[in-house]
Structures are given as structure tokens and as C-alpha cells.
Simulated assay, not measured.
Amino acid sequence: VKIAIKPKSGSVLTQTTKNDIVTQLAPYNVGSVKPDIVDPETTSILITSAIKFDAKSTTKTADTIKSDIINSISNYNTNTLQQFDSIFRYSKLTGIIDDTDPSILSNITTVKMRKDFTPTLGSSNAYSIYFRNALYNPHSGHNSAGGGILSSTGFKIAGDTINEHFLDDDGQGNVRRYYLVSGVKTYANATQGTIDYDTGSITLSSLAISSISNIRGAASTVIELTVTPASNDIIPVRDQIVEIDISNSSISVTADTFVGGSSEAGIGYSTTSSY
């Protein structure tokens, strides 16, 4: 029997603590059934939020309001998410952002999901990554020319010591591997794996990774996969936990420039895309 446990502090238990729990549970084992303590599976949520506020109704600067919003999101992340049965509810998040300060007029917020996997270097292996939430694919071939809805951090493969490789999808269920030549994608394998948009599962086949690229300027032992979900509400399944990666989300706050009550109302006013 596998038991996933999330510690009060930190993200995973030490092996010593896991062994101690198994020992304490031993008297309660039924027959040959023994517990196996495993780490929870974390899905990170990345948000991009463009907030507009009324500068005339507050003495706060945009930076101060941004800091307040980050604190509000952090409280939601800590107090509501990061638990096995806690659903990320999009309307809850956008409401929290709007309610952070009376001067806030609106927010346009988009959501992505990210997971990572640890490859075995120097040998050809298959990998399966499970988002356990449906992925955005409104029609076959969606955004194929733009890389679909999947992106990855970089890595190098056996036999190619020069090019840094990445993954995307073709909108038809195929995961593609490519490298850049003068900023242009060159596909090395158009069927490196599969992506199931209904279940959110990604399978990579026969991938011989020789090294892993740095992520955000730091050495890494994992490869990150980022996808667009079909729904803005994200559900944790079984041993899964969802949490907002605040430090790698994008939050911008600007003063609203709309001028009403005149013949010039709305002219030159720009909005942020919701997609």
C-alpha cells in the first residue's frame, strides 16, 4: 500500500522519517500488506496576471500594490492549496487579486501547468509525465506552427554535443523534439512521444539524454514541461498536490488610462489578451 505524506514544513520527508513511519505502522499491518511511504506529486501552477488600478483613488504606487497582490496570492497558496484535496479555483484567485486593494479595477489572468522529471543520463529511456488534467486542444493541429501547448527546458542528447534540444507538440497528439538554428526551430524528431490532451499524460520514447541545461540560471537535475490546461480550474488527483509557483509567475500592475465622459473615451485604450 502506497501512502503519500506531505510534511508541515518542506516538500518531502527524509528517508529516515519514512523508515520510522513504516516501523511505527508495522504492528498494524494486515497479513503481507506493508506500507510504502512515497512523496506527493506536485503540479506547479504558473500565472500571468495584468492588473489595472485607479491611480486617482489611492496613494499607493504600482509596486506597492504588486507587493500586496503577491502577499494575497501567497496566503491563498499556503492556506488553501498545497493539500491533497485542495482544488485550484480560477475565480477564487482572480477575486483575491481584485479584493487586494479598493483601487484595483481589473485583472486579466492566464494559467499554465508545469511538472518536471528526472532523466537517467547516458542511456535511452522512456518517460511518462502525468498532469492528470485535460489539456487545451480545441481542434486537431491546434497551434502546430507555434509549438502547440507544450514547452520544455533544454537538454542535450547522445550523439549531438552542440545543439540544445527542446520539446513541443503538433496539436495532433505528437511530441516533437527540436533545436534552434539562428532562432528557427529545426525538428530532429517529429514523433519523440505522445501527448494525450484528454487525460493530460505525456509519454516520451527512447530519449537518450546526455546532459541537462541550466534552468533560470541555475544548474538542474530535472527537465521541466509546461502546458496549457483545458480548464482554468486545476484538480489534484490521488497523491497529487497543486501549488502556485509565485516566484516564476508574471504579475504586472499599471495605472488605468481610460478617460470617460468625453468624445475621446476609449480611443487608444489597450487591453491585455485573455489567451
Rank of each mutant, 00 (worst) to 15 (best):
P35S: 14
Y179M: 05
N19R: 10
G31I: 14
I162T: 13
L13G: 11
V181L: 12
S49I: 03
I241T: 06
S144L: 00
D168F: 11
V222M: 03
P229C: 13
K34F: 08
I223P: 01
V111M: 04
S67I: 07
N107K: 01
A26L: 08
V237N: 02
A134I: 10
I21M: 00
L13W: 05
A55E: 14
T228G: 00
L25C: 07
S103C: 11
G147R: 03
Q15Y: 05
E41R: 01
K6R: 14
S263T: 13
T191Y: 15
T186A: 12
T186Y: 10
K8I: 14
S128V: 11
V184T: 15
Y136H: 11
V175P: 03
N133F: 01
G200R: 03
F258H: 02
T254M: 03
N174R: 10
E164Q: 00
M113T: 09
S270P: 03
Y130D: 14
S211E: 10
F53V: 06
T17Q: 11
S210A: 12
Y127K: 00
A230E: 09
N77I: 10
G159F: 10
V12W: 09
G148K: 04
S144F: 12
S274V: 13
S201A: 14
G159S: 09
S11W: 10
T254N: 07
S49L: 00
I267H: 03
A188P: 01
S247K: 13
K2L: 08
T161K: 02
I47H: 07
G171M: 01
Y76G: 07
R89V: 14
R216E: 07
T78R: 13
L105E: 06
K115I: 08
S44N: 13
P138E: 08
N125H: 12
L135V: 07
G260S: 14
Q82H: 04
V22H: 00
S220K: 01
Q192N: 09
T78V: 13
T48K: 12
G146P: 02
T194C: 04
F88L: 09
I241E: 04
T64G: 00
S128Q: 11
A219R: 00
D63Q: 12
T17S: 14
D116K: 12
S210I: 13
T61A: 07
S57M: 09
F117N: 04
G159H: 07
Y179R: 00
I195H: 05
P102S: 11
S9H: 15
D170L: 02
Y136S: 02
S252V: 14
D170W: 08
F53S: 00
D68E: 15
N107P: 01
L135S: 04
L135C: 09
G10E: 08
T80I: 15
I223H: 00
S103T: 13
S250N: 13
S250V: 12
P119V: 12
T80H: 10
I246W: 05
V22N: 06
S144M: 06
